[in-house]
Design a protein around this nucleic acid. Structure first.
Length: 403
DNA sequence: CCTCCACAGGAAGCGCAGGAGT
DNA sequence: ACTCCTGCGCTTCCTGTGGAGG
């Protein structure tokens, strides 16, 4: 009666799953805990920044620590320390972050119309009786007015005699440090910690442990795990990617009604995962960002006249496609056409540039200044992945049919 | 050398939604 | 009901800039 499946507990294989033990991250966890533990004794912990590429376990470690933290304060009745997690990709301004934190404690804050001073007062009230508040800012580099936020939060410490507020920042961009104001930089970087990428052997261990829990016994070839680990470490060392890979391989084997995951499944999963990953980011994009990306993708498929022009000067290299660059000017024109087609009002050129830089932050496109050989100063845009794939994804999202 | 191109990106301000105070 | 305030997304305006062209 029940459908035959090789999955035993699929949630274990999800990238959001937080395991009891995080292999190869004991050192980092211990260090973070030792930085944060003063909060349990009503002392203000130092601020800390966690660095590392995607899928190196930063968020996972932090969630593990938060759970343990909450469990340890639960029994003791009056809690001395509060810990709050904020995903800054969604809550990307000072206002939204404070609102998000406070609405867990006072529900009336979950409305717009309040000014920042209101939130500030509420925050002070919350920690004024000697409590310590730890704010975990995941993807901290996405915050638009981070300097002001850091200033607001550190200033609150000056006004309090007992409680305090400290920040745990999580970022995967090393360069974002330089964009900060020197004052907020020095207060934010009291402690710094780097998460190195996992090695192939480590990923292999992680995969086999999760597979043991996630799949039925004996259903995963050890060579399939080795292959998935090898592919991952060759690409990025991103554990999340590795989990996706093995998960997808499982789905393929399941679909074909086999009871073992083999190398071949991992190979075919590889192509699907990449499309899936970009699809995930694309569908959650705001509409205007989607239209912007769509215009770039379709122009890249068509080929830009400027880039064709400039390619003629260069001698043909193996006949294979050199990276296709688009001029921001022609991309904007295409964007206007696309907006027209779907009956949306195109935003101004100025704002279009903001869209571009946000798409670049997400890694969907790459840009570079035009430099020598091109008249005027402009930006060259290159699409991150296969333009055709992105176009197909967006076609289904935007309900378009363009040829 | 100057001028023009094709933009980049900062500043100011606008309309809107949704509070609070009166 | 009204006025005032706030943040946000956005437009308009403006000045700056690196290289090509004459």
């Amino acid at each position: 009666m029940s459908k035959r499946t090789i999955f035993r507990n699929p949630s274990v294989l999800s990238p959001h799953y937080v395991p009891k033990d995080l292999p190869f991250r004991d050192h980092q966890i211990n260090q973070i805990v030792s930085v944060l533990s003063p909060a349990l004794r009503s002392q203000k912990p130092r601020n800390i920044i966690l660095y590392g590429k995607t899928g190196t376990g930063k968020t996972c470690c932090m969630k593990r620590i938060m759970e343990d933290f909450e469990n340890s304060t639960k029994g003791s009745g009056d809690t001395k320390a509060l810990i709050q997690y904020v995903n800054c990709r969604i809550y990307n301004s000072r206002y939204r972050i404070l609102q998000k934190i406070l609405k867990n404690y006072c529900p009336e804050a979950d409305k717009s119309g309040f000014g920042l001073p209101f939130f500030y007062e509420k925050l002070l009230e919350l920690v004024s009786d000697g409590k310590q508040m730890i704010i975990v800012l995941d993807e901290i580099d996405m915050i638009k007015d981070l300097d002001e936020l850091v200033y607001t939060l550190t200033r609150s410490n000056d006004e309090l005699s007992y409680g305090g507020v400290s920040i745990v920042g999580i970022s995967n961009k090393l360069s974002f440090k330089d964009t900060l104001d020197p004052r907020s930089k020095s207060s934010l970087y009291e402690t710094e910690m780097v998460f190195p990428p996992y090695t192939a052997e480590q990923i292999q261990r992680i995969l086999s442990e999760r597979s043991k829990e996630g799949f039925a016994p004996e259903s995963v070839d050890s060579s399939a795990i080795n292959l998935a680990a090898a592919i991952t470490s060759q690409e990025t060392g991103d554990a999340r990617y590795a989990l996706k890979l093995i998960n997808k391989a499982g789905e393929i084997a399941d679909f074909e009604k086999r009871n073992k995951i083999t190398d071949r499944d991992v190979e075919s999963a590889r192509k699907r995962v990449e499309i899936d990953l970009t699809k995930e980011t694309i569908v959650t994009l705001p509409e205007m960002h989607q239209l912007t990306l769509y215009s770039i993708a379709s122009l890249a498929v068509k080929g830009s006249k400027y880039s064709r022009l400039s390619l003629e000067n260069n001698s043909e290299q193996n006949g294979y496609s050199a990276p296709c660059y688009l001029f921001s000017g022609e991309a904007y024109e295409e964007y206007e056409r696309v907006c027209n087609k779907v009956g949306k009002r195109a935003r101004s050129l100025r704002w279009y540039k903001e869209y571009l830089s946000e798409l670049e932050v997400l890694g969907l496109i790459a840009t570079k200044p035009s430099g020598k050989g091109i008249r005027g100063q402009t930006t060259l845009i290159q699409i991150g992945q296969n333009a055709k794939d992105i176009q197909t994804v967006l076609d289904s999202v935007l309900f378009l049919k363009v040829n």
